[in-house]
Deep mutational scan, measured.
Amino acid sequence: SIVTKIISIVQERQNMDDGAPVKTRDIADAAGLSIYQVRLYLEQLHDVGVLEKVNAGKGVPGLWRLL
């Protein structure tokens, strides 16, 4: 499923980069989806406690990390 793919992308990127959070844009590119589509999935995963959003604010790139 797309959700499983997104989780594995975040996991893979974090492992490659010493646990650093992953940008929404990088996840979207790797999943082959638009940034808006991916954001909806990321928000859902956040709501159920799978991911945390590391930063927030208007015009700030979203950074995500697995919990």
Rank of each mutant, 00 (worst) to 15 (best):
S1P: 07
S1G: 11
S1N: 09
I2P: 03
T4D: 12
K5R: 12
I6S: 00
I6L: 08
I6E: 14
I6M: 02
I6D: 00
I7A: 03
I7Y: 05
S8K: 11
S8E: 11
I9G: 01
I9A: 07
V10P: 00
V10R: 08
Q11M: 12
E12N: 10
E12D: 09
E12A: 10
E12H: 10
E12W: 13
E12M: 12
Q14W: 04
N15R: 11
N15P: 02
M16L: 10
D17G: 15
D18T: 07
D18H: 14
G19C: 10
G19Y: 15
A20L: 08
A20V: 06
A20I: 06
P21Q: 03
V22W: 03
V22G: 00
V22F: 07
K23R: 11
K23T: 09
K23L: 06
R25M: 08
R25C: 07
D26V: 09
D26T: 09
I27L: 04
I27Y: 13
I27C: 01
A28W: 02
A28S: 04
A28D: 05
D29M: 12
D29H: 11
D29T: 11
D29E: 12
A30D: 09
A30L: 08
G32F: 03
G32T: 02
G32I: 03
L33Q: 03
L33D: 04
L33K: 01
S34M: 05
S34Y: 04
I35L: 10
I35C: 08
I35G: 03
Y36N: 11
Q37S: 07
Q37H: 10
Q37G: 04
Q37W: 10
V38C: 14
V38M: 05
R39K: 13
R39A: 12
R39N: 12
L40I: 14
Y41I: 14
Y41T: 04
L42R: 00
E43V: 05
Q44R: 14
Q44F: 15
Q44G: 07
Q44Y: 15
L45W: 01
L45Y: 00
H46E: 10
D47I: 12
V48I: 15
V48N: 11
G49I: 15
G49D: 03
G49H: 06
V50W: 05
V50K: 05
L51M: 11
K53D: 09
K53W: 09
K53Y: 10
K53E: 07
V54L: 05
V54W: 03
V54H: 03
V54N: 01
N55Y: 13
N55D: 11
A56M: 10
A56S: 10
A56W: 08
G57A: 07
K58I: 09
K58G: 09
K58F: 08
K58N: 13
K58T: 11
K58Q: 11
G59F: 06
G59R: 06
G59H: 06
G59P: 04
G59I: 03
V60L: 14
P61Y: 14
P61T: 13
G62C: 15
G62Q: 13
G62K: 09
G62N: 15
G62H: 14
G62F: 13
L63W: 09
L63E: 14
L63N: 06
L63I: 04
L63Q: 09
L63P: 02
W64T: 01
W64Q: 01
R65H: 05
R65T: 08
R65G: 05
R65E: 05
R65W: 13
R65I: 12
L66H: 04
L66R: 01
L66W: 08
L66T: 07
L67C: 14
L67N: 12
L67T: 13
L67A: 15
